[in-house]
Design a protein around this nucleic acid. Structure first.
Ligand code: ZN
Ligand code: ZN
Ligand code: ZN
Ligand code: ZN
Lengths: 152, 152
DNA sequence: ATGCTAATTGATATCAAGTATCAATACTGA
DNA sequence: TCAGTATTGATACTTGATATCAATTAGCAT
């Protein structure tokens, strides 16, 4: 469950785990800390490489806990492994740069209103929705003009 | 590229392949025919099981061709393997029953208008978007009332 | 119809992402 | 302290999907 506090991301993630009755361990602190310092969206495999001292199973388990707690968003982008991004606000959508993979959150009241209005038209009960906007971010546009690349 | 003709799904899919310069083979006919008769969303593995006479590689390759041609939508739903559904109209979104996995298409002009209006607010160029509505379909609601299940 | 050539197939091996197992280890609370 | 529970992580395994490549086949030109 994302909080809108001024606490550090690290603290929020650890709190999300503790709120679920999970212990604060060195391994979980390492994973969580790495997620904070990385700052941007990541894959499970990337975390495993970045944290060779933490077992693969533990990395995957910790990510799963954080997703279950709503502290991380699991993003199924195109092909390949899912990416995870920190959930900063409760209900939101994602804008994803197709070039560099940068992930941002956004909220839009009209979209939410449309969703509510669909309740009448849809044949069944609406449980929820998901939405992604694919963009080329301004950084990537700038880079392509100077022939550089920020990917990698 | 989905067509809005009165042709059969089978014909549309085969045409989608031929339009890409691909030959019409027995294996591709078998895969395509099976997709038509199944009618609903499916996974690659399901097709392989349904078509033991067609090699796995060929099943996966044919699906990829059809997705590339825009004749099939690739849906990343929750966990597990992606599902594929026939694309009947050009730009659309999906409503997915979380209970039985039934996939339907829908279009909504307001959503498209909102997307266009976001062009101004978003920091970068919008390439496209994706949206899914998760529902419990009327069939599953009815089934749950009578204690039945249409899953499987 | 016949033969040529490039496209296609599919058995097999391999890869990649992720989970199950389970003995060893680390906490926690009495 | 100490029993009991939670956690860890090496390993094996599962699943989904792709790479290889010799054999086959479709489409085309004669
Ligand atoms: Zn970017
Ligand atoms: Zn929303
Ligand atoms: Zn249903
Ligand atoms: Zn749309």
């Amino acid at each position: 469950m994302p909080t809108t506090t001024t606490e550090s991301i690290y603290t929020n993630l650890i709190t999300a785990l503790e709120d679920r009755g999970l212990r604060k361990t060195a391994a979980r602190a390492a994973v969580t800390s790495r997620i904070e310092t990385t700052g941007k969206a990541f894959t499970a495999e990337q975390l495993c490489i970045d944290l060779p001292q933490v077992g693969r199973a533990t990395v995957y388990r910790t990510i799963r806990h954080l997703v279950d707690a709503g502290a991380l968003c699991k993003l199924q982008i195109l092909d390949g492994a899912p990416m995870y991004s920190i959930a900063r606000v409760e209900h939101h959508h994602h804008k994803i740069c197709s070039r560099c993979g940068a992930v941002g959150e956004f909220q839009h009241s009209t979209v939410e209103r449309v969703m509510r209005s669909l309740e009448k038209e849809i044949d069944g009960d609406i449980i929820g929705h998901r939405m992604e906007i694919f963009i080329t971010c301004s950084q990537c546009i700038a880079d392509s003009r100077t022939g550089e690349s920020s990917v990698g």
